[in-house]
Nucleic acid binder design. Structure first.
Lengths: 139, 139
DNA sequence: ACAATAACTGCAATGATGTTGCAAACATGA
DNA sequence: TCATGTTTGCAACATCATTGCAGTTATTGT
């Protein structure tokens, strides 16, 4: 459970107004270790409108608080960004892992995406999603 | 334009019944070089019901004819599989590239996803999606 | 070639998710 | 505290994914 002051600071640092909804969403991201779906937010924070949560996520993405994670399931997941993200530039060169056992998607912040170069192609961003069994489930 | 016999063989090889819809969808995948959305199929093949195309894609995935490509846009794309795919095991260790200029998603069959090992994690599948400007648009 | 069977298709309907406009409520800086 | 611009909730709509069912079609064995 993060302190209110810390959450508030995080929002202010990203040029976001401090509201109940944003604090609760942020709290949820911080308390869970893994990426969240908008559906999960809706189920957990029933006091807020679905649209509000949707717009909260969008503003969080825009300001560099969270990032969207590609997934072949078609359901968008959002992971909280590291320290280095700003509205101007997101830096998500870390690997994502989807566990087929618990279903969680984790941001593996310590693992950077390997560089790939392809002749004739200009590569601006790299995403890597691994599928398998995560540490917790693999024991 | 692939010969009818070749398309037919491809379907039979994957334990799929030969139907008009499947032949047309397959033809479309073969003639376009890049990954397709279900929306595109609907627009191109208006003589078939949307549900039929949906189920055609699903059966193609199940039998290893095409594979679903993760994308943070939320719109599913499908790429035709290489020779090595079977119902039992898909092998898509190639890199995917999404061009921000033309919007196409290409399967870069010649580029395999770099191996990443993470202690404690069992990795069963690796996906890599690059974003940038493709060869055609980069000239 | 033909019948039996299992698979495929179209239609209707439903659910989930993403998205916008607008008016009321709220956070912020002066 | 006030003025301002931002955020929220509601309603509505668009898109996509998915299922059931009945009619049609492809395939297998004879």
């Amino acid at each position: 459970m993060l302190k209110y002051s810390a959450l508030k600071k995080l929002l202010k640092d990203h040029q976001l107004r401090v509201t109940d909804c944003r604090l609760d969403v942020l709290q949820l991201f911080k308390s869970r270790g893994h990426a969240l779906t908008s559906r999960y937010l809706e189920d957990e924070l029933t006091s807020y409108d679905r649209v509000t949560l949707f717009r909260t996520l969008n503003s969080f993405i825009e300001k560099g608080v969270v990032h969207k994670i590609p997934d072949d399931s078609g359901i968008a997941r959002y992971g909280i960004c590291g320290h280095s993200c700003a509205p101007a530039a997101h830096h998500h060169d870390h690997v994502h892992f989807k566990c087929s056992s618990c279903g969680h998607v984790d941001c593996l912040s310590d693992y950077t995406v390997p560089t790939v170069t392809i002749p004739g192609y200009l590569i601006q961003e790299s995403n890597m999603i691994l599928n398998g069994v995560c540490k917790s489930c693999n024991q």
